[in-house]
Amino acid sequence: MALLERHKADKIGDAVFRGVSYFFAISVVVLMLFIFAVLFKESLPAIKKFGLKFLVSSSWDPVRLEFGALPSVYGTIVSSIIAIVIAVPISLGIAIFLTEMAPKGFKGPIGTAIELLASIPSIIYGMWGLFVFAPFLSDHVEPWIIEYLGFIPIFNGAPLGIGMLPAGFILAIMIIPFISSVSRDVFQMVPPMLKESGYGVGATKWEVIRKVVIPYTRSGIIGAVILGLGRALGETMAVTFVIGNSHEISHALLDPATSISATLANEFTEAVDPLYLSSLVALGLILFVITFIVLVLAKFLIGGFSYKGGNL
């Protein structure tokens, strides 16, 4: 009898525990849907007013209440692409160095140091960009670029030290530790057998990397790159300090620009008119959708590679 009662209590306990844990698991799904719903509801006035034109209009006029997302979206995408173009080769270089070249005693400490750098808060990168890197760029680097490369339209402009290119560069520095530690992890998953057989037929180190390691880890690397892209797209602090906050789309990468996150950080507490506010939330919704798509893509690409490199 007592045993039966205990059994019953246990059953109830099990059901409750299971139910509670199920509730919290489902809460992740609910949360995601809720974020979408709230952002959508708050951006409805802007969507109703501007419709699809919101996406292609480049006017951002708070006086006449005409808003278009194009300059912010353009800045978000271009600065992230610049970041990826700079960060990927460097990160792969670091990963190759760590897995194939560094002496044994170096691998651990340098690898750990790079992973630690991935945990530095992004505002530190932004602040450093503003106080240290921007003056350095405008005094030493940009005048040179303008003088010697100025004939290429994208390198035209004034040496402000602040703009699309500097923002992309700071973003690159920020995502380098991330991409390189993930790529190092996938490089390490190449079975030593494969590499050994490469060396066995007389291949050089570079040939083994290019013909064995990279093809074997291709989808993992692409996944890492896209995850890095996801971070760059959504980053606020590293960008806001250095992008220059101008709603003009300029062909010149040295010119000031803006990004969705920078526009939000600059203008959200400021906006008075409901339509202005709603347009800002609509920008947030666009950013959420863009990163969502990019991350889903990354997830499918990494797919087979079950990445266990941590919680970055």
Partner: peptide, 16 residues
């Protein structure tokens, strides 16, 4: 969804 939420832009969470 957790994997995606991990990398969701944090400023959008602030808006929410």
């Amino acid at each position: 969804l957790s994997d995606i939420l991990v990398s969701a832009p944090s400023i959008v969470i602030g808006l929410f």
